[in-house]
């Protein structure tokens, strides 16, 4: 059974693409045949985060319009087996995405390519691209920063997921949506300057998939075009790894939620 997962947020810049790349890579590392699709038509970026930007020949819109078949357009990841990338096109024509077209691509990935997971990296906003990315989803990951505008937009997106997916339209009820809180800074939370994970959970009222700490490793990863989950020594990489395990049903305690208590010296002179 192929599972389609949308990674969404409403607000831009909160970590959707970073999360899509990490989730897809994590699933592939565990042996699941996985494709990650960039739905951000006109503003392609997943290719950069995955480090395959120079190997893009065909894209999502080429497949929809029939200029290429799915096999030609899929880019096989060089670092991880079972992992494929379907980039967005750089055309500005948003109407290139149609319900039938997207359904055709997803069906080809399921039936011809035998994918276990299809990760749909949604664009920001609530326009067509975002709706297309979410429409066929069986599950959703809502990426949120502990910050007012991101939380509000996430709530909006949760509302849209509850009514505008195929499952919702068919009366199957809400698709499971889980919260991934990114750029979390335990120190600022303890100082009362940032919403805590409990605060955000209380407001959004959905299950918590993971908390990714604010980390230099994320920028390092995108700088080098290697998903942060492959940086196994980093806090963010480990947090994503945990989130993938939870995604697959493991019960793991959440890590990186508290500051490392400093010693006396650190408290007196530390930064």
């Amino acid at each position: 059974m192929t599972k389609i997962v949308v990674v969404t947020s409403g607000k831009g810049g909160v970590g959707k693409t970073t999360t899509s790349a990490a989730l897809a890579t994590g699933l592939a590392l565990r042996g699941f045949k996985t494709t990650v699709i960039d739905f951000d038509v006109g503003l392609r970026n997943l290719d950069l985060i995955m480090g395959c930007e120079r190997r893009v020949v065909y894209d999502l819109v080429n497949v929809i319009s029939g200029d290429a078949n799915i096999k030609q357009a899929l880019i096989k990841d060089k670092k991880v087996d079972n992992l494929f990338i379907l980039p967005a096109s750089q055309t500005r024509d948003k109407d290139a995405l149609t319900i039938e077209g997207v359904e055709g691509v997803l069906n080809a990935l399921r039936d011809d390519m035998q994918m276990d997971y299809i990760i749909c990296d949604s664009p920001a906003g609530i326009e067509k691209g975002a709706l297309m990315a979410a429409y066929f989803a069986d599950e959703a990951v809502v990426v949120t920063n502990p910050e007012v505008s991101s939380v509000r937009d996430s709530d909006r997106i949760i509302g849209i997921l509850a009514s505008k997916t195929r499952h919702a339209e068919q009366g199957d009820g809400d698709i499971p949506s889980r919260l991934l809180l990114t750029r979390y800074s335990p120190e600022r939370v303890e100082n009362g300057q940032m919403l805590s994970v409990e605060d955000v959970q209380e407001i959004l009222a959905i299950e918590l998939l993971g908390v990714i700490p604010e980390s230099q490793a994320v920028l390092n990863a995108s700088n080098s075009g290697s998903p942060v989950i492959l940086d196994t020594d980093s806090d963010a990489g480990q947090a994503y790894s945990d989130a993938v395990a939870r995604f697959l049903g493991d019960q793991l305690p959440h890590r990186f939620l508290t500051t490392n208590k400093k010693g006396l010296f650190g408290r007196l002179f530390g930064g």
Partner: peptide, 14 residues
């Protein structure tokens, strides 16, 4: 403590 202000505002608007 600005976090508690943020939470309160969010609860109302949401």
């Amino acid at each position: 403590n600005t976090a508690s202000v943020a939470k309160e505002r969010l609860q109302i608007i949401v």
